[in-house]
């Protein structure tokens, strides 16, 4: 049983802004041993997204674009299959083009 999954999902639904991303990173670190592939990917995605803020802000259209990843993030947490994680990575790469 993964730790804090409900918290993770709640935070994702609340919005992928820097403060939440930092919390998400910490929660994901707690699940790394049990589900390394999924949570390693999630940590990397969250770290990169958080770094876009430079501790201040991003344009809101960028914020909305990033938030469109939420359903895929939640799917990867609920069912950490190779397919779900691959879909998440593909969508993330698209958002970061």
């Amino acid at each position: 049983m993964m730790k804090d999954n409900e918290n993770l999902k709640e935070l994702i639904k609340k919005g992928l802004y820097q403060d939440n991303l930092e919390c998400l990173i910490e929660l994901c670190k707690g699940n790394l041993k049990e589900e390394p592939l999924t949570f390693f990917v999630l940590i990397n995605i969250f770290e990169r997204l958080a770094s876009e803020y430079e501790n201040q802000a991003v344009p809101s259209n960028r914020y909305n674009e990033v938030n469109a990843l939420a359903p895929l993030l939640i799917s990867a947490i609920d069912k950490p299959s190779k397919k779900n994680v691959s879909n998440l990575i593909k969508a993330y790469l698209e958002v970061c083009k």
Binding site: K14, G15, Y17, Q18, D19, N20, Y53, N55, Q56, A57, V58, P59, S60, N61, R62, Y63
Partner: peptide, 18 residues
């Protein structure tokens, strides 16, 4: 001053950036 809103690290919106 941004014509379109920006999202702050806190999640709040603003039109100003430093």
């Amino acid at each position: 001053e941004s014509g379109t809103p920006i999202t702050l690290a806190s999640g709040r919106k603003s039109n100003y950036y430093i």
